[in-house]
Design a protein around this nucleic acid. Sequence first.
DNA 1: GACAAAAACGAACGTTCGTGCTTTTATAGT
DNA 2: ACTATAAAAGCACGAACGTTCGTTTTTGTC
Lengths: 202, 202
Amino acid sequence: MSKGLETRDAILLHATEMASQIGLTGLTIGALAEDLDLSKSGLFAHFGSKESLQIQVLEHAAQDFIEAVVRPALREPRGEPRLRALFERWLAWDREGKLPGGCLFVAAASELDDRPGPVRDRLVSLQREWLEAIAICFQKGIEAGKFRADADSAQFAQDLHGVMLAFHHATRLMGDPKAEPRARRAFDTLLAAARRADSSSA
Amino acid sequence: MSKGLETRDAILLHATEMASQIGLTGLTIGALAEDLDLSKSGLFAHFGSKESLQIQVLEHAAQDFIEAVVRPALREPRGEPRLRALFERWLAWDREGKLPGGCLFVAAASELDDRPGPVRDRLVSLQREWLEAIAICFQKGIEAGKFRADADSAQFAQDLHGVMLAFHHATRLMGDPKAEPRARRAFDTLLAAARRADSSSA
DNA sequence: GACAAAAACGAACGTTCGTGCTTTTATAGT
DNA sequence: ACTATAAAAGCACGAACGTTCGTTTTTGTC
């Protein structure tokens, strides 16, 4: 790897950490440069604009996320084990991942939901992929006969996402130590409903 | 109401709307003053600091929230009707309330979860009250025999909160028109599990 | 209508923001 | 080693940031 790409990676690594705490908008070229012992202009030259930096931070985080959460989960057998791996690895990513502020996408989602532009567009696209990944995993479980045939995979995705968001809120903001067992219990309930025939929702 | 309080209220009203879109940190004395045809210094004098403004925006929003969501719901009979009213009024507050960016607290929660200080402290306190309000409503339902005696009201609060957060995400960021019926279905499932005796979670 | 108090203003402060340009330094291929 | 190129620095810019201060206008009271 050339020197340029090397420092670029170092910048993106640190910028991703910073953004997980203070948001993509809160990111600052100046603070970033000082932390990395670079000049503002030297750092700036790597990206050309703050907006470009923000987008590349998203790409960098998405790459990490796929590596740490999605890909390992896909190695698990279909149905419940794969979904559980997806969920557990997300919990770990949000709790003890490299990002000090927890899942960057949770922060970015509510930060950008009223800020139109390329950064938001990219985030929406990434989030859609993520929700679809959940839905597809669930759908595969249906097709394999593991879950009820009339279950709604998109409903399951939104529900599971809610469990994750509530966990993030309860731990990060409220500091509630019981948040994690509760999230697991909610996940189990969701799966139980998907298995049994007497529940009304996915 | 004196002239001072009058403009102060106008400021807080507009600031709350602005904060729901760009966040409490994104709030700007300058932009706020320009929107309201005030001088920066004139507006500033009402609060003494930006931090104080942010806190008072939170208070203002909380007052509105109680008025629009909590108090009307408390007029419903205990148990399911009251919980449903709480949920439905929250949905309306997030969807078509006066705040153009949706529920301010959802935005503030992920914005401030890594920013220690008085603003965050106040938000945590408010959010704790909100989650406890949900839990208490549920608990009253248990005591009235409407819900299973072994249900966990704090678990229910976190679960319901997750349904709301997922709804906010799906509508505000993803623009998913099915988000609302899915949120309702999730709510129904939650309540169904609380009623029946064969489910494992609240 | 005079007068004290409250409210709003206008200008400026020092910082920091993102972003250009120009120059110096470090790297990589021969 | 020499050199073309890439990377980083240095400096400056206009704008916006939160905040302070002294002054002016407005308000409410007798």
